[in-house]
Amino acid sequence: MGLGAFFTSKLDEAIGWARKYSIFQYPFVTACCGMEYMATACSHYDIDRFGAGLPRFSPRQADVLFVVGTISHKMAPVLKRVYDQMTEPKWVVAFGVCTCTGGFYNNYATVQGIDTIIPVDVYIPGCPPRPESVIDGLMKLQDRIAAQAQRY
Protein backbone atom coordinates (compact mmCIF):
# COMPACT_ATOMS: atom_id res chain seq x y z
CA MET A 1 0.00 0.00 0.00
CA GLY A 2 1.43 3.31 -1.04
CA LEU A 3 1.55 6.47 0.96
CA GLY A 4 -0.96 8.14 -1.41
CA ALA A 5 -3.77 5.78 -0.53
CA PHE A 6 -3.30 6.50 3.15
CA PHE A 7 -3.48 10.21 2.61
CA THR A 8 -6.49 9.94 0.29
CA SER A 9 -8.60 8.09 2.79
CA LYS A 10 -7.74 10.53 5.56
CA LEU A 11 -8.45 13.53 3.36
CA ASP A 12 -11.76 11.93 2.44
CA GLU A 13 -12.65 11.69 6.07
CA ALA A 14 -11.76 15.29 6.72
CA ILE A 15 -13.85 16.50 3.82
CA GLY A 16 -16.71 14.20 4.79
CA TRP A 17 -16.59 15.58 8.31
CA ALA A 18 -16.68 19.14 7.01
CA ARG A 19 -19.45 18.43 4.55
CA LYS A 20 -21.73 16.72 6.96
CA TYR A 21 -21.81 19.76 9.23
CA SER A 22 -22.32 22.31 6.51
CA ILE A 23 -25.55 21.20 4.95
CA PHE A 24 -27.29 23.81 2.89
CA GLN A 25 -30.75 22.49 2.30
CA TYR A 26 -33.30 23.37 -0.30
CA PRO A 27 -36.72 22.82 1.31
CA PHE A 28 -39.03 21.87 -1.54
CA VAL A 29 -42.11 22.38 0.60
CA THR A 30 -45.42 21.46 -0.95
CA ALA A 31 -47.84 20.20 1.67
CA CYS A 32 -48.68 19.27 5.25
CA CYS A 33 -45.16 18.09 6.04
CA GLY A 34 -44.08 21.69 5.63
CA MET A 35 -45.66 22.44 8.99
CA GLU A 36 -43.48 19.87 10.69
CA TYR A 37 -40.54 21.11 8.68
CA MET A 38 -41.16 24.59 10.12
CA ALA A 39 -41.38 23.13 13.61
CA THR A 40 -38.12 21.27 13.12
CA ALA A 41 -36.33 24.30 11.75
CA CYS A 42 -37.45 26.65 14.53
CA SER A 43 -36.21 27.08 18.03
CA HIS A 44 -37.89 24.13 19.75
CA TYR A 45 -36.07 21.46 17.80
CA ASP A 46 -33.44 23.63 16.18
CA ILE A 47 -32.02 21.89 13.17
CA ASP A 48 -29.11 24.35 13.37
CA ARG A 49 -27.50 22.11 15.99
CA PHE A 50 -26.75 19.71 13.16
CA GLY A 51 -25.22 22.28 10.89
CA ALA A 52 -28.29 22.42 8.68
CA GLY A 53 -29.72 25.69 9.87
CA LEU A 54 -29.57 27.75 6.72
CA PRO A 55 -32.10 26.92 4.04
CA ARG A 56 -31.11 28.07 0.58
CA PHE A 57 -34.01 28.65 -1.71
CA SER A 58 -31.91 28.56 -4.80
CA PRO A 59 -31.12 25.09 -6.10
CA ARG A 60 -27.70 26.25 -7.25
CA GLN A 61 -26.66 27.13 -3.73
CA ALA A 62 -28.00 24.05 -2.03
CA ASP A 63 -26.61 20.58 -1.63
CA VAL A 64 -29.41 18.68 0.11
CA LEU A 65 -32.85 18.65 -1.43
CA PHE A 66 -35.55 18.15 1.19
CA VAL A 67 -38.68 17.08 -0.66
CA VAL A 68 -41.36 17.93 1.89
CA GLY A 69 -44.88 16.89 1.03
CA THR A 70 -46.97 15.23 -1.64
CA ILE A 71 -45.75 15.52 -5.20
CA SER A 72 -48.51 15.56 -7.75
CA HIS A 73 -48.03 14.75 -11.41
CA LYS A 74 -48.39 18.44 -12.15
CA MET A 75 -45.53 19.24 -9.77
CA ALA A 76 -43.24 16.38 -10.78
CA PRO A 77 -41.53 18.13 -13.73
CA VAL A 78 -40.76 21.09 -11.46
CA LEU A 79 -39.14 18.81 -8.90
CA LYS A 80 -37.05 17.12 -11.57
CA ARG A 81 -35.93 20.48 -12.86
CA VAL A 82 -34.95 21.73 -9.42
CA TYR A 83 -32.98 18.54 -8.85
CA ASP A 84 -31.21 18.89 -12.19
CA GLN A 85 -30.23 22.45 -11.38
CA MET A 86 -28.44 21.49 -8.19
CA THR A 87 -24.72 21.09 -8.41
CA GLU A 88 -22.74 18.05 -7.28
CA PRO A 89 -22.30 16.81 -4.64
CA LYS A 90 -26.01 16.62 -3.87
CA TRP A 91 -28.27 14.50 -1.75
CA VAL A 92 -32.02 14.04 -1.59
CA VAL A 93 -34.14 13.48 1.49
CA ALA A 94 -37.68 12.18 1.05
CA PHE A 95 -39.55 13.83 3.91
CA GLY A 96 -42.84 12.18 4.78
CA VAL A 97 -44.53 9.08 3.50
CA CYS A 98 -46.04 10.76 0.43
CA THR A 99 -42.59 11.34 -0.98
CA CYS A 100 -41.42 7.85 0.03
CA THR A 101 -44.21 5.81 -1.54
CA GLY A 102 -47.16 8.03 -2.25
CA GLY A 103 -48.55 7.33 1.20
CA PHE A 104 -52.26 6.95 1.46
CA TYR A 105 -52.77 8.98 -1.66
CA ASN A 106 -53.06 6.30 -4.30
CA ASN A 107 -54.93 8.09 -7.04
CA TYR A 108 -54.76 9.68 -10.44
CA ALA A 109 -53.08 12.85 -9.24
CA THR A 110 -50.18 11.76 -7.08
CA VAL A 111 -46.69 10.44 -7.79
CA GLN A 112 -46.10 7.11 -6.05
CA GLY A 113 -42.80 7.99 -4.43
CA ILE A 114 -40.32 10.54 -5.69
CA ASP A 115 -37.75 7.82 -6.30
CA THR A 116 -39.62 7.16 -9.54
CA ILE A 117 -38.33 10.55 -10.70
CA ILE A 118 -35.12 11.36 -8.86
CA PRO A 119 -32.67 9.29 -6.75
CA VAL A 120 -33.23 9.43 -3.00
CA ASP A 121 -30.64 9.04 -0.23
CA VAL A 122 -32.67 9.06 2.96
CA TYR A 123 -36.35 8.26 3.46
CA ILE A 124 -38.11 9.71 6.50
CA PRO A 125 -41.50 8.03 6.86
CA GLY A 126 -44.37 9.48 8.85
CA CYS A 127 -47.49 11.40 8.00
CA PRO A 128 -46.00 13.82 8.83
CA PRO A 129 -42.84 12.65 10.61
CA ARG A 130 -42.29 14.07 14.07
CA PRO A 131 -39.35 16.45 14.43
CA GLU A 132 -37.46 13.73 16.30
CA SER A 133 -37.62 11.40 13.32
CA VAL A 134 -36.65 14.21 10.99
CA ILE A 135 -33.54 14.81 13.05
CA ASP A 136 -32.87 11.07 13.09
CA GLY A 137 -33.11 11.06 9.31
CA LEU A 138 -30.80 14.03 9.10
CA MET A 139 -28.21 12.26 11.25
CA LYS A 140 -28.42 9.19 9.03
CA LEU A 141 -27.78 11.43 6.07
CA GLN A 142 -24.79 12.94 7.85
CA ASP A 143 -23.35 9.49 8.47
CA ARG A 144 -23.81 8.71 4.84
CA ILE A 145 -22.15 11.92 3.74
CA ALA A 146 -19.18 11.30 6.02
CA ALA A 147 -18.75 7.71 4.94
CA GLN A 148 -18.99 8.06 1.19
CA ALA A 149 -16.07 8.46 -1.19
CA GLN A 150 -15.70 12.20 -1.65
CA ARG A 151 -15.36 13.87 -5.01
CA TYR A 152 -13.73 17.26 -5.03
Binding site: Y105, Y108, A109
Partner: peptide, 25 residues
Protein backbone atom coordinates in the same frame (compact mmCIF):
# COMPACT_ATOMS: atom_id res chain seq x y z
CA UNK B 1 -53.51 22.80 -8.79
CA UNK B 2 -49.95 21.80 -7.95
CA UNK B 3 -51.12 20.05 -4.81
CA UNK B 4 -54.25 18.48 -6.21
CA UNK B 5 -54.42 15.07 -4.59
CA UNK B 6 -57.97 14.00 -5.30
CA UNK B 7 -59.58 14.58 -1.91
CA UNK B 8 -63.08 14.45 -3.31
CA UNK B 9 -62.46 11.28 -5.29
CA UNK B 10 -60.74 9.57 -2.36
CA UNK B 11 -63.73 10.29 -0.12
CA UNK B 12 -66.03 8.46 -2.50
CA UNK B 13 -63.89 5.34 -2.26
CA UNK B 14 -64.37 4.51 1.41
CA UNK B 15 -66.88 4.65 4.21
CA UNK B 16 -68.01 7.83 5.89
CA UNK B 17 -65.47 7.63 8.69
CA UNK B 18 -62.69 6.78 6.24
CA UNK B 19 -62.82 10.29 4.85
CA UNK B 20 -61.77 11.85 8.14
CA UNK B 21 -58.02 11.39 7.65
CA UNK B 22 -58.33 13.03 4.25
CA UNK B 23 -60.06 16.03 5.81
CA UNK B 24 -57.10 16.46 8.16
CA UNK B 25 -54.97 17.22 5.17
Amino acid sequence: GYLHRAFEKDCEEGGYNNAIPFTDR
